[in-house]
Design a protein around this nucleic acid. Sequence first.
DNA 1: CCCATTTATGACAACATTTGCAGTGGCGGC
DNA 2: GCCGCCACTGCAAATGTTGTCATAAATGGG
Lengths: 363, 363
Amino acid sequence: MPHSDPTAPGNSRAGIVQIAQRIGVSASTVSRALRPETAHLVKADRRKQILDLADALHFMPNVGARIIRHGGSASLTVVVPHDENIFFSEYYGRFLSCILHAAAGRNWDVHISTLRRHPDQNLRQTLQHFSLETSGIIYLGEPFTMEDLEHLRGYRRPLVLTQSSLPPTLDVRDLGVHVIGVDNFSGAKSAASLLRQLGHREIGLVLGPSASRDAYERRRGYLEILQRDGATVRPEWIFEGPFSHDTGRDGFAAIFAGREKPTALCCANDEISFGVIDAARAAGIRCPEDLSLVGFDDGPWALACRPTLTTIRQPLTDLAERAVALVVEASHAPAAARRILHNEMPAALVIRESTRAIPMGAR
Amino acid sequence: MPHSDPTAPGNSRAGIVQIAQRIGVSASTVSRALRPETAHLVKADRRKQILDLADALHFMPNVGARIIRHGGSASLTVVVPHDENIFFSEYYGRFLSCILHAAAGRNWDVHISTLRRHPDQNLRQTLQHFSLETSGIIYLGEPFTMEDLEHLRGYRRPLVLTQSSLPPTLDVRDLGVHVIGVDNFSGAKSAASLLRQLGHREIGLVLGPSASRDAYERRRGYLEILQRDGATVRPEWIFEGPFSHDTGRDGFAAIFAGREKPTALCCANDEISFGVIDAARAAGIRCPEDLSLVGFDDGPWALACRPTLTTIRQPLTDLAERAVALVVEASHAPAAARRILHNEMPAALVIRESTRAIPMGAR
DNA sequence: CCCATTTATGACAACATTTGCAGTGGCGGC
DNA sequence: GCCGCCACTGCAAATGTTGTCATAAATGGG
């Protein structure tokens, strides 16, 4: 937090010293009595006396003093995009839950913040503001620019990025920062393969934003399979947009506006699929009877919606666990000793009701 | 966070003293040069020299030392229930977004945590653990027991509860704690009134958990209207369950199992409504043609689903804004000077597609 | 009853930064 | 040339808690 508005409460009257004076013991004794680890060192009845008074005075140890002795607080900051409904999104909401869970298991505290960039501050300086309060950062925010990444090179504190926050074609290995993510390419390939195996030949794509690395990789995976036999995907069957419900609606409308209509669609994520399902239903086209559909993410709704969605599972629990572990480890090790990790986890295909084989006779 | 696992990073080599030594000035000068407020006191070229070196060494001021002098960090903790999909829920997810937004506007930092209760710790002691790190708490967690609330009476730090975390019939005014919430009772009444105005006389209720104050108030509101003319609601048309999709399905199944079927249902929240819609669709009962439906919350899906849902809007933005404002104010004022606030905000009815008038001839 | 061992407590330094006060040197006005 | 003022900088105190070392008191074995 910037120093412009320190917003100090500082209304805690009673310190350890005041308690000591009242009872007539030394501050050391009070300190020992108050902390579970050292409580056994002080005689039981005196300890009780101290605890009672501390409770009565609403004593609260000063954080600063603890940090200054102890060297930092066990907490990490998660940076999320600045978006009203961010938590509600299947991806961020679940990812955060998982991070929270992983952190709680280690007794770490989690801060959540959006990144407020100052025009005359580079990325490193901005991130260092966070480091004032926490010992590490998990970055899930808006994608970085190349310039940002250049500034990041000098950042020495624990930091974990997701692939999603990187530009599409960048090589992550020489970035000097931990990067985690799923294997979008293979995941997308397995989804497209499934559709081919089910007999689909007319397949459209409702893709994510072209600036997104995730979207780029998924596109690459879908196309890899669809173009395998030298086939081409009709350009009018490819639609791009943000990772949102609306993109699904608009994509369906655009692709089904033409005379030739595909029998299956690959979507860049679940939410887009839901938009497609809605628009298709409204247009009288049934899923999966008339249109097979695959999503990407396997969020809670993929199982709750009708038809249940065939999709590719993001192992968010594992990703979160890994991200937290990396921050925690890095915060223990000296900066120099850190080994940079690039971790791509498998994304498994989950087959449900939204995909169906083309009847033998039809093609 | 508890001290059981301190997890100190402490790997920041360069302090203000090291910088001072390298340049050959005193620590005071470096301190002054680094802080904007005191920067004018140090000669321009020397200041530049100091800033450059600080940047080169990745200098980062020690939080503890700053806090210890200045009095505390501008941050609050939001306590949420311990639930895997907590962020994904419409209510919590949006509420958290709003809190984040309100806090960001004040340059406050937000921690998120579940409450891990220790058996031999009372509620106040547990909350004080949080206060170690933050200057205030917004509590959205599991409902409190009466015993908890008794312990809470002595808690003096900034704390804001939502009504939802209180037992149903408790009088909030003598609680000694800020309580915010919406006017569930009036909201529910307006929803039931709408159905009556539309000509519905056979109305069932799919209610929330009886231990929830929100559910209790909404039930009270629905019944107030439905029993107005001395009418009674058939007991077999009342179903209770958690605030979940499944409750909607089960409630629909239970209520529509009998011979007599209602023409409308009031649900305790949106998610229950969605469950009802799903189950009804599966059973061949159309909404709103055969069954009118009102929810409660007005989350994102209420507008996104088909049919769009008539529901009661929770002004989460205002609630979050108020909660954050209360914590911030309280953290400035001395404990004694605080005026306890109980704030019940209006919940407005939003009429959409899921409610329809009974045709004139039908009744 | 003495010495060794344990238990309970106090005194004090250390943590990294901020800040009041004092000191230095340069400079202009008289 | 003296006085006072200004700009700049250093010294040292202070912040609240924890850990180390020392000390005092209590206990126990012979």
